[in-house]
Structure formats: structure tokens, C-alpha cells
Amino acid sequence: MSFELVEPDSLPAALALLDPEDPGVRAIAGGTALMLMLKSGFFRPRRLVSLRRIGDGMSGIRASAEGGLVLGAMARLRDIERAPAVWQRAPVVVETLRVHSNIRVRNVATIGGNLAHGDPHMDLPPVLIVLGAHLTATGPGGSRTIAAEDLVSGYFETVLGNDELITEIAIPPQGARRAAYQKCTTRAADDWPALGVAVSLGLEGAAIREARVAVGAVTDRPVRLRETEALLRGGAVGESLWREAGEVAAREVEPVGDDRGSALYKRQLLRVAMRRALAQAAGAAG
């Protein structure tokens, strides 16, 4: 396989090397997903634009003044997992990363690459959705902001232009909201999820003031479950509500079966994982 590998040393140079029309031209960051596609012959690039040399300026992990987090797109998963600011402000991200993939992958994979890949079988997208995260995408015409839940438009498809790069991920202040992620794997502990459920709850005493719920790996893209959220909003914390939410969630999406589980089984996993994620979030320290 012969292709061109370029290693620009600035973001504008990288953007200039991308091609809005040619799917054979792609950016490569950590490469953990892309290399599998290359090895299997699934993807035959014409040009790979390595972001290696521009990584330093885009890998910051910092606490924002308002109480949120700003993650550079080239930040490695393992660095995010170990950053005290992330621990303090969005512990669910740390918990998710710990079960995300094996440590060798976490050591090289970047958060921007992870999201831009558009893989429906990923752990972070539903988590970022319930945290209300926004991404900054930069292209030749400048930058724009995309809500995490709007990023993935279909099976391995995103709203990003082929000449756009994710440059930053902003997680807003979570206040007293509590989040949890339940990952189900069926082939091995270290695997892509058969299903992942992320929830975030804003509580007022025993009442739920605000709820966000998203699932990954169950359909062709990570999805937010608005009916389940509506059920939860205003409800009373407790097992019976969690159980009902599981039933509503199981009705709200039409699961797609894959090598990790049939549609029928995924529906059951959704029911169970939803209940458990809600119980975990409600029980978690604020």
C-alpha cells in the first residue's frame, strides 16, 4: 500500500493538507482505530495527515474559570484520566476511561480522534452528551461549535467536513449534577461496549430536577433518550422510577444487533444498565 504521509507543524498547514472532497485523505492522531482499518484493508488512504507535530499545542487539559473543563483535541485518553481537574469536575469521565480500552490504547489514543471517528461503539460519546459537552471544529473557513449530541450523524459518519478538525472539547460546569456510566461488554472485559448507558441527574432533595440520558453501541450512533429524560424529570429518586426508566428506554430505541449481542439482548441490557446507571448516579457523591 503506498500513500502519502505528511506531518505538518501547524494547524493551518494541517487543514490545508486535508481535502474536502477526497475520502482517501484523512487526519491521523493516535491512530488506534485507523490502524485497524488500514491493517484490515478496510481503508486505503491516499494521504494521511499526521497531527503528531501539532499535538503539543492542542493537548492541554485545563479547568475553565466558570468551573468546567477544556480538553485539547490531541489530549491523550490516559492524560485526561490522570488529570486532577478532570477528577474533580467530571469524575464520570475518569471512570469511563478506566474501562474504555486497554492501557496501551489509552496511552496513545486522543480524545479528538476518538470522537471524530464516529464509531457508534464508543464509550465517551454518550458520556459527553449527558455532560452537555461542546466541541470546537476548525476548518479553512474558521471555527464553529458543535454540541456533542449533534456530532455523529450516522454509522461512522459525523457532521464534520473532511477538511475540518476537532480542536477542543468543552465540558460545562456540572454544578451539583451527578453522572454515571454503565458499560456492558459481552466478549471480554476489554472490548468495545455491547452497550453503554450514560446518565446525568440534577437533584433537588429526592426529586429529579434535570435528567440527561444517552446510550451508545445500541443503534447506528450514540443517541440521547428524550422520552426517558421526560419520564425522569420531576420524578422521585428510587428503584421504581429507575425500573420504569429502563422500560421506557428499552421501548424508546430500536436496538441493532451485532457481534456483541442480538437486538433482543441489547434491549434487555439497556433495561438493566439504565436502571443501574441511574441508581449509581443518584447514589454517587455530589
Binding site: 485497524l36 491493517k39 466478549r187 471480554a188 472485559a189 476489554d190 457481534d259
Partner: peptide, 26 residues
């Protein structure tokens, strides 16, 4: 865990990414 999965004679999981040998956590 381990299983060579075939569909019409084609092996669906010919890589360690999809053919899962036990890891420490398993």
C-alpha cells in the same frame, strides 16, 4: 470467550481485536 465466528465460510473475527483471548480483568 474465544470463538472463531464464521459466516458462509468467511471468518468474521480474524484479529485479536475481535477474537478475544482472556485479559487480566477476565
Amino acid at each position: 470467550q474465544e470463538e472463531m465466528v464464521f459466516e458462509d465460510g468467511q471468518l468474521r473475527n480474524p484479529s485479536l481485536a475481535d477474537y478475544k483471548i482472556p485479559g487480566l480483568r477476565d
